[in-house]
Design a binder for these strands. Structure first.
Lengths: 337, 337
DNA sequence: CTGAAAGCGCTTACAG
DNA sequence: CTGAAAGCGCTTACAG
């Protein structure tokens, strides 16, 4: 391992001058600069992060929290993989590496302890257990945080245009002649209001078209998984067998719902049309392929990275950033008459 | 921030004694120990990782490589999310944090440079771009590596029981009366031999049952994605329209293949039965649900963690670890006659 | 523009 | 069992 003092010996300059040149910080004459840079290249010198970080009190480390709430089935989340990939690229370009935070670290260190231990400079809360007290501690500790999931009081949240988009989706059903439209919601969580906000769009679209908004046509699934969509659809159609279309708060619920309808002999989309949300991989695999909204992982990640780096740099105005989504038309919507 | 010398002042002991007590390293009398530990607790002392790591030359950091080869569709990989979750827990318990390595770090640092820069102690190559020269550099650098994907010469690889399992899957088709069985393979990659090994199991099962092994009944998909499965199935059935069952090298290919058959009016499983591999989420969403093999993410992660920590500790016997898979029977196989 | 010196918080021989 | 001292590799005032 070659150090800065090796470089000093080799070039004949002092360690101070070598540091100055290497960190592009402070003056040095041209010859000194050239010789030192050359020596560094030739010897393959690489600065020691530990010593550097110790001095600068700066780890250049961003923590990410990705907890899998429904570990029992180990399903892959349709969004966070893509978001993390893009997020990593964005912050990487700014010199940050990513630490994948764990609750198991050192057998029981909390997120906050781990972050302090590593001097993590900022945190992306990509997918946390709902209302996790450990996350609350973290936020309270003052370490810069941005959430890509829950609304957490006091920190910035990046979230997609739920209401506007779902309004557009339901309007699309209406434009295709549907008037008896149901809504299968996910759990109503105040801090993760996707189901609530998407329901708001559903309501707005109906009102805008002069269609009666009837809460009987709404069924709230217990979870966001397949089975819950199946069960919710069963209840919904027991109550409203005349529905010709269903808007679902996410693709997984839609696929579960479609499985129920198929089981009772309904054809999709001939008998019942569907619009989902997220553009998960399954929306291409189910039959028929699902008309849905694509959450743009790249845009979400970019907004998270930008916002988090702003906060780290002291630019911490609280804000909710809304990211637009793209409507993807596939085969699950039939034109009525 | 409270330091070790603060603790020394508070307790009246020297920094040497404080370190010794705190690191459980070296002798100290009972009273000293109690007072120092108490002071540490009261002040909320937390050792500074940078200084500590600088001295010990030990980062307690494990890097993971997860590159998304098919970024164009940003599909989530059906396996690696689950593997990483479990891996993180395993190494976390041993005091390692995880660094999510990036090619974008610092605009163009290679994996190896980033690893050296951070003093990463070991690396899990979970999903790399096939035959990536940057990965080759990393392996050559001597940093302990374990692969959960490719076979990389000289390093340990953890991989599932491909041949045995697929033999069992095809035997299951045979037991259900099928004799005209096709195989849709993925790309034959020497270093990622899933398609090859699963094909070997297909062959062994046929031979064991006295059924002629005919390579006409094998079609190699160009990639591992839906479209490729669709296209491969089209070619396969153009050549062998009489097949009653198809074994696929992965679930995604199977779903794509089923989509093709549905399009030409075949019923599944009545006309053609299917067995997949991986137990991806989509195998539950497609219709009919897919009989497949579940790769046990937990077991794979555990084996990777154990192996990597062994290698880090100098216990580096080269080995290929085979992890068993579970057969999951669903609705895509019909009994013939 | 350049260097000597002190410092960061921690660890490790080495004496006592 | 305990402490003074030197060291890790790097950075930062401070003189010159």
């Amino acid at each position: 391992m070659v150090t800065i003092s090796d470089l000093a010996k080799i070039t004949g300059y002092s360690v101070s001058t070598v540091t100055r040149v290497l960190s592009h910080n402070g003056a040095a004459n041209q010859e000194a600069e050239e010789r030192i840079l050359l020596a560094a290249r030739l010897t393959g010198y690489q600065s020691d992060t530990f010593s550097h970080a110790e001095q600068k009190r700066s780890s250049k480390l961003i923590g990410i929290i990705v907890e899998n709430e429904s570990r029992q089935n180990e399903m892959e989340h349709p969004l966070f993989g893509g978001i993390l990939d893009a997020f990593r690229d964005h912050v990487g370009k700014r010199g940050y590496d990513i630490l994948y935070l764990s609750k198991s670290f050192n057998s029981g260190m909390s997120y906050m302890e781990d972050c302090r231990y590593r001097n993590v400079e900022g945190i992306l809360i990509a997918n946390s257990v709902y209302d996790d007290p450990e996350v609350a501690d973290l936020v309270a500790s003052g370490i810069p945080c941005v959430s890509a999931a829950e609304f957490i009081p006091g920190i910035c949240t990046v979230v997609c245009e739920n209401t506007l988009s779902s309004k557009k989706g339901v309007a699309h059903l209406i434009a295709n002649g549907h008037t008896k439209i149901g809504y299968i919601a996910g759990p109503y969580q105040v801090r993760s209001p996707a189901a609530i906000e998407r329901g708001e769009g559903y309501k707005q679209a109906l009102k805008a078209a002069g269609i009666t908004y009837d809460t009987k046509r709404i069924e709230k699934a217990e979870q966001w998984e397949l089975d819950a969509g199946y069960a919710a659809c069963e209840k919904l159609f027991a109550r409203c067998p005349d529905l010709t279309a269903v808007f679902c708060a996410c693709d997984t619920l839609a696929v579960g719902a479609m499985q129920y309808l198929r089981k009772i002999g309904k054809r999709i989309p001939e008998d019942v049309s569907f619009v989902g949300f997220d553009d998960a991989l399954i929306s291409l695999c189910c039959h028929p392929s699902l008309t849905t909204f694509r959450q743009n992982r790249e845009k979400i990640a970019c907004a998270c990275a930008q916002k988090l780096i702003d906060v780290i740099n002291g630019n911490d105005e609280y804000e909710i950033v809304r990211v637009p989504v793209d409507f993807i038309e596939r085969d699950s919507v039939a034109r009525l008459n």
